[in-house]
Each structure stands twice: as C-alpha cells, then as structure tokens.
C-alpha cells in the first residue's frame, strides 16, 4: 500500500513540475534573465549527469587508464561530436566498454 502511494505521489509531483510553467504562463511573461538562461539548461543538466559517471565510476576520482568508462565515454563523445548519430554513439560506447573491460586488468 505504501509502495503504491509512493509511486502515485512521485507521479503527481513529476506532473506538477512539468505543468508548472505551462498553464500559468498562459498569462505570465518570463523575466528576460530566465529566458536567457534556458538554453543552457539541457547541456548543463545532462553534462552534470555524464561527467561523474565517467570520472567517478566507483564514487571517487579515477583518471587512470584502467577506468574503462572514462575511455569509452571519451571515444563516444568524439563520435557523437562528429556523427551526431545516437545509435552509433551508444553502440560504439558500449562495445568499447566491453572490449576494455575484457582487456584491462581489474
């Protein structure tokens, strides 16, 4: 019962966040300073998720060549930059991770 309530509350809160500035904004105009900041939101949020995933795979900084996620992520980043292709980026990153994990000493 608590589990279902948790899921329902999580859903309601998520929906409220999505709806927050869509329904009220029918009448309100955003301050220009917020408007300017908006274009930085997706790259800032997503990079903030990506970088710890690559540099802190086990919760602490790992710049070593033994960090397969860092190497695979950097290669995937180069491929994403040049190709702009999601499938190619994900597949090449995963394959690189698997190959490195198999080759690198643990």
């Amino acid at each position: 019962m608590t589990l279902w309530l948790t899921v329902l509350l999580g859903g309601l809160i998520t929906y409220a966040e999505r709806l927050s500035l869509i329904v009220p904004l029918g009448r309100v105009t955003l301050p220009p300073v917020l408007v300017r900041g908006l274009r930085f939101v997706p790259p800032a949020v997503l990079t903030a998720i990506i970088v710890p995933e690559l540099l802190l795979p086990h919760g602490e900084l790992d710049f070593s060549l033994g960090n397969a996620r860092l190497l695979a992520g950097v290669l995937a980043a180069v491929i994403a930059w040049w190709s702009r292709n999601v499938i190619l980026t994900v597949v090449s990153g995963m394959v690189t991770l698997w190959v490195l994990t198999a080759l690198l000493p643990r």
């Binding site: 998720i49 994403a80 999601v86």
Partner: peptide, 15 residues
C-alpha cells in the same frame, strides 16, 4: 552505462 552514452549523444552535438 548506456544511459550516460545516450546523454552524451544528445549533448555533444549542441556544444
């Protein structure tokens, strides 16, 4: 790890 990779694919092209 594919989660981070799909975020990389979304982000790098806009930099």
């Amino acid at each position: 790890f594919s989660v981070a990779l799909s975020f990389i694919a979304l982000t790098l092209p806009v930099l």
